[in-house]
Design a binder for these strands. Structure first.
Length: 641
RNA sequence: GCCGCCGUAGCUCAGUGGUAGAGCGCACCCUUGGUAAGGGUGAGGUCGAGAGUUCGAUUCUCUCCGGCGGCACCA
């Protein structure tokens, strides 16, 4: 029997005379670890603690504190839930139940729908199973045996899963007490290790194997943690996220609304529109500085143009059309690019004109499926901060790099410093030859590599006309949002007859880069609201300051203060209502007004104001001029600083 | 689009087979009060829409519309 040398995370070596199990290894290191050991990580692969270590390897013992433990706990919670469901609801078939971010789910096949009350029952049953503390026992079965078994007990989904496993795959079954499930593992030693830090959260429908042609299963989502304290922290986070929900803030702050007559389209209120305009003003200024020109193109254009561009064929299903007079069919633009090319095509372009950066705040309409709509985040009509850069092939890399830099720079003005990039390559549904795609992908890849930024690959997710980069930013409470996009397009310029005259005197098709930084202004507004929890930085707050009087004696002076603020460009309002200052402060704080200037006898006497900032507890007594100057300075957008 | 849940006052929500209630908000009155709710009075609802069952429907059933949570989709 050969010796086995095991390297532990601290670099130390343990020698054994032959293979050892994880349990034996843990015991050899110390009794405390033996007790705490939950699983093994052998050369980066997580395995059951009972697995045996056969050859020299780097091994880590996973305990409850390890990062990898959460995944195991969640996966096991899913198994326990499945057992509970089958105990309570005989006849229910199990399908799959993985761990996911913050929790797990399990998909069941059952005629009758589960109800919220059922969730409570299932939780109670899960507690029983956890208390039983049955060991998770791994068994290796043959394919035929496994298929026969699951078919016999009426688990047709499991039988199907096993049937479809690739040849040569080891088929493992995990038992917990009398219950068993097909599972790759690994698992904790026993159900008791799941603990009490879990909660079932919601019921949902989900297609079998994620395919909308298949039947729909019932999915139960849950969250699971190391202990009740961690669970509580997560539930608190969910509550916080709910408080930040932009739909709620939109109503509370009187920014926008939706109604039946225009499902998926926004009714912007004065305050919301002010915010929206702030963002456009900011972006316009940044783009002007970055060498863009701005255009505007028609919302409704003839079907013929969309046929030529390829939109009609590839995405006509998602386009709104209008049949007006004279037998012509028109479409509301779902994208700005074809219109942009028409502007480019006016007059003859020389290589000297390139790169030509043409921006458009275009409002696009897309027929999104009803189930996809979600507040400002997913709408049927939205405004893009779109631009199309016409350039030569040689300029692609430089232009892409400049766009990437601009995006990151702009995001940081909004407090988004954690940005990831996804590279999406050719989709099945596409136009253009493979040759063109090869070129486009290579060009975009070299551009993203030139930025030095890390990126991940998103296979098959590109636009139908070209590959793209997607910029994903992480908000204040750790959620990811995809916003900006940069696409290389060697197809549309050809389809829509765009040319430039090169140094050789010949006509060539330019390369077109599509890019949007905010993406959808509507969506970005929603993201900002949630990111800032409604407490927007002063420069984009719709109402920046309120002047509030203590008593009516201060009315005249308050008007003066209000006018001074207004004269300095501060969006302000006077509150001289017959209410106590407590009441006024509370109300304007709830409305997320960044600054409240209180004036009473004390301030009138020496022309001061008492400035209170949102979220603060104290006030600051300032000379009127100083307060105005300070707020005016803060009210300038980062693009103007 | 699919599955599930939901739809009662401006908002948040209670409630009932015999045509409705609270808190906040709103209006008016009293109160002139120094930093997150002073007090009183009052107005306000086709109980999402349509059909059915019933002597009678906001309540039960069905259809539709919309919202929410997922799934699928996201040029």
């Amino acid at each position: 029997m050969s010796n086995v040398a095991i390297t532990l995370p601290d670099g130390s070596l343990k020698h054994f005379n032959g293979p050892v199990t994880g349990t034996e290894l843990a015991a050899a290191i110390g009794p405390g670890l033996e007790k705490a050991a939950l699983a093994l990580k052998i050369d980066g692969e997580v395995l059951d603690i009972s697995s045996s270590i056969e050859t020299d390897s780097r091994v880590e013992i996973i305990t409850r504190k390890s990062d990898d433990a959460l995944d195991l706990i969640r996966h096991d919670t899913a198994h326990v839930m499945a057992e509970a469901v089958q105990e309570l609801f005989p006849g229910t078939q199990v399908t799959i139940g993985p761990s996911i971010e913050n929790g797990f789910y399990y998909d069941f096949a059952r005629e009758e729908p589960f109800t919220p009350v059922d969730l409570e029952k299932i939780e109670a049953k899960m507690m029983e199973i956890i208390k039983r503390d049955d060991a998770f026992v791994r068994e290796v079965w043959s394919r035929d045996e496994a298929v026969r078994h699951f078919t016999d007990i009426g688990e047709k989904y499991k039988a199907q899963l096993i049937h479809d496993l690739p040849a040569g795959e080891t088929i493992t079954i995990y038992r917990q007490g009398d219950w068993m499930d097909l599972c790759r593992g690994p698992h904790l030693p026993s159900t008791g290790h799941v603990g009490k830090g879990f909660k079932l959260l919601k019921l949902a429908g989900a297609y079998w194997r994620g395919d909308s042609n298949n039947e729909m299963l019932q999915r139960i989502y849950g969250t699971s943690w190391r202990d009740e304290k961690e669970l509580k922290a997560h539930l608190d986070m969910l509550e916080e996220a709910e408080k930040r929900d932009h739909r709620r803030l939109g109503r509370e702050m009187d920014l926008f609304h939706f109604q039946e007559e225009a499902v998926g389209s926004v009714f912007w209120h004065p305050k919301g529109w002010t915010l929206f305009q702030c963002l456009i003003d900011y972006m316009r200024q940044r783009q002007n500085e970055a060498g863009y020109v701005e255009i505007n193109t028609p919302d409704i254009m003839d079907r013929g143009l969309w046929e030529k561009s390829g939109h009609w064929e590839k995405f006509g299903e998602n386009m709104f059309t209008t049949e007006a007079k004279e037998d012509r069919v028109f479409a509301l633009k779902p994208m700005n690019c074809p219109g942009g090319v028409q502007v480019y095509n006016q007059g003859i372009k020389s290589y000297r004109d390139l790169p030509l950066r043409i921006a458009e705040f275009g409002k696009v309409h897309r027929f999104e499926p009803s189930g996809a709509l979600h507040g400002l985040m997913r709408v049927r009509a939205f405004t893009q901060d779109d631009a199309h850069i016409f350039c030569t092939e040689k300029q692609i890399t430089d232009e892409c790099r400049i766009v990437c830099q601009l995006i990151l720079d702009i995001y940081s003005d909004f407090g988004f410093d954690d940005v990831r990039i996804k590279f999406s390559d050719r989709p099945d549904m596409r136009i253009g030859s493979d040759d063109i795609w090869d070129k486009s992908e290579a060009a975009l890849k070299s551009a993203v590599e030139a930025t030095g930024l890390e990126y991940s690959i998103n296979p098959g997710e590109g636009a139908f006309y070209g590959p793209k980069l997607e910029f994903v930013l992480r908000d204040a409470i750790g959620r990811d949002w995809q916003c900006g996009t940069l696409q290389v397009d060697l197809n549309l310029p050809e389809r829509l007859d765009a040319f430039y005259v090169d140094t050789d005197g010949e006509k060539h098709h330019p390369v077109m880069l599509h890019r949007a930084l905010f993406g959808s202004l509507e969506r970005f507004t929603g993201i900002l609201l949630e990111h800032y929890a409604g407490s927007l930085p002063l420069w984009m707050a719709p109402l920046q300051a309120v002047v509030a009087t203590i008593t009516s004696d201060a009315d005249d002076y308050a008007v003066e203060v209000r006018d001074a603020l207004k004269a300095s460009g501060i969006r302000t309002k006077l509150d001289s209502r017959n209410e106590k200052i407590n009441y006024k402060v509370r109300e304007h704080s709830h409305a997320k007004v960044p600054a409240i200037l209180v004036v009473g006898q004390r301030e009138i006497a020496d022309r001061k104001v008492a400035l209170r900032r949102l979220g603060g507890r104290d006030q600051e007594f300032l000379a009127l001029d100083d307060a105005v100057a300070r707020l005016a300075k803060e009210g300038v957008s980062p693009s103007g600083r």
